[in-house]
């Protein structure tokens, strides 16, 4: 690919953050499958000398299990380079001396090992899927409404996601339900929160303008990255919709067909 003047902003790039689901792989039966060309694209980035980190709102698995799943698909990724909401919220809980009531997926529970959950003074919700029963939501509600100043953390704020058997409600829906019930505003941990992206930037030791984020979610990936000063590329895979390219509120710095094309653009123009 020849250098393209509209991609000049890539000249100063020293680091890349990749979203995972919808960019590296499509979720589905047996954990999903790699998107064509993405395994090689990740390898090329790793060999390029650019800093590389991964950023996901995945909360149905611990990072260890998640990375293991990706290894099976052919991605060679180390756990320490993956940033997800659960470890981020654990840091916040420790810093603020909070004891959470957890409404999260069973497979995420190990991320909270060592966290004091006795007499909770805040609530953490993640994508709990089948565990989002009336009973469980009511328990979280009762904890919140019983607090003098309710504190609610939401691991992401997605509306829904796609699975092989159709669209599924995401954590944001239940976050909204609890916000309405208790008249509180949740603190969102994960994309698109700036705090979350800043943690990744700190780890890379780079300035925002030196980093480009590649994702399939216009609001959470591209918009989130842009609002903390990074560039955002949207790939036309995963949950991408053609209407994203004329969205009135978020405009990606560039749209590319897939991760392979994104890596071509980055490596050619830097």
């Amino acid at each position: 690919m020849a250098a393209d003047s509209s991609l000049e902003f890539l000249k100063s790039v020293k680091g890349v953050i990749l979203d995972m689901c919808g960019v590296l792989y499509d979720s589905g039966e047996g954990g999903g499958r790699a998107i064509h060309g993405s395994v090689e694209a990740v390898k090329r980035l790793m060999d390029s000398g650019l800093m590389l980190r991964f950023c996901t709102n995945e909360t149905q698995n611990t990072r260890e299990r998640f990375v293991q799943k990706l290894r099976v698909m052919g991605f060679d990724i180390s756990v320490s380079h993956v940033f997800s909401p659960a470890p981020a919220v654990v840091q916040i809980l420790q810093k603020r001396h909070l004891r959470p009531h957890l409404l999260v997926h069973d497979d995420l529970i190990p991320e909270f090992d060592g966290v004091d959950t006795s007499s909770p003074n805040c609530v953490v919700i993640g994508d709990a899927a089948e565990k989002f029963s009336y009973q469980n939501l009511n328990e979280a509600f009762r904890v919140l409404i019983g607090l003098e100043k309710p504190v609610l953390f939401s691991l992401g704020r997605g509306r829904y996601y796609k699975e092989t058997d159709g669209l599924k409600l995401d954590v944001g829906v239940y976050m909204k339900a609890l916000e309405y019930a208790c008249d509180v505003q949740a603190e969102v941990v994960g994309k698109p929160s700036s705090e979350f992206f800043k943690t990744v930037l700190n780890d890379m030791n780079l300035q925002p303008h030196e980093v480009v984020m590649v994702g399939d979610d216009l609001v959470n990936d591209v918009g989130g990255a842009q609002s903390c000063g990074m560039k955002g590329l949207q790939v036309r895979t995963g949950k991408y919709r053609p209407s994203d390219e004329c969205d009135p509120s978020v405009r990606a710095d560039a749209y590319v067909d897939d991760l392979s094309a994104a890596v071509d653009a980055i490596l050619t123009n830097r």
Partner: peptide, 10 residues
């Protein structure tokens, strides 16, 4: 109300 609000958001 909370469930209606959640569905409205989704």
């Amino acid at each position: 109300g909370p469930f209606v609000t959640g569905l409205e958001y989704a």
